[in-house]
């Protein structure tokens, strides 16, 4: 057991973690962030992606103790308290980028990680930005167009 502290969605947590616990398990099983999904356990599908210190990471490949002192954003941290959606979430809804929804939380975060760094991405850059996240339902077209739309919303100063 190891005691670590980390920030998730702006809130500080101090938790005891087992040596072999993955960040994914910490977030889901211990802290209740079940918007983080497990699809493959080998960093291939991207469903467990979270943003850690500004970078998109697959939480199944990171040990919990490695998150010591880190700032993490999960899907639960995007919606405002008054219920307002993040422009990316709004765009996903409007463009029809959601089907079964299992890849969606991580896909939204992948889009956020991309747009935080590159506010005016081309289609190719968007595809590359989300290429680590698999989706079996949508064929990605509506995800790409929603990231484009979200970029417009964000560049106008939020919707």
């Amino acid at each position: 057991m190891k005691k670590i502290s980390l920030t998730v969605n702006g809130k500080l947590y101090q938790v005891e973690v087992e040596e072999d616990m993955r960040l994914l398990d910490l977030l889901r099983d211990k802290l209740g962030f079940t918007g983080v999904k497990e699809g493959c356990s080998e960093g291939e599908c991207g469903a467990c992606s979270v943003i850690m210190d500004g970078k998109l990471v697959t939480s199944c490949l990171i040990m919990a103790f490695q998150a010591e002192g880190k700032e993490i954003i999960t899907i639960e941290g995007l919606q405002k308290e008054d219920g307002t959606l993040h422009p990316i979430q709004q765009a996903f809804l409007e463009e029809g980028a959601v089907q079964c929804g299992f890849c969606t939380p991580a896909m939204v975060l992948a889009a956020k990680a991309l747009l935080d760094k590159n506010p005016h991405p081309t289609d190719e850059e968007i595809k590359e930005g989300i290429s680590g996240n698999l989706c079996r339902c949508t064929g990605y077209a509506k995800i790409v167009s929603s990231v484009k739309k979200a970029a417009e919303y964000l560049n106008k100063g939020g919707k």
Partner: peptide, 14 residues
């Protein structure tokens, strides 16, 4: 229509 397109694109990928 948008959901139909979503099915078409997903079917294309599959």
């Amino acid at each position: 229509p948008k959901m139909i397109e979503g099915q078409m694109e997903g079917g294309f990928a599959m």
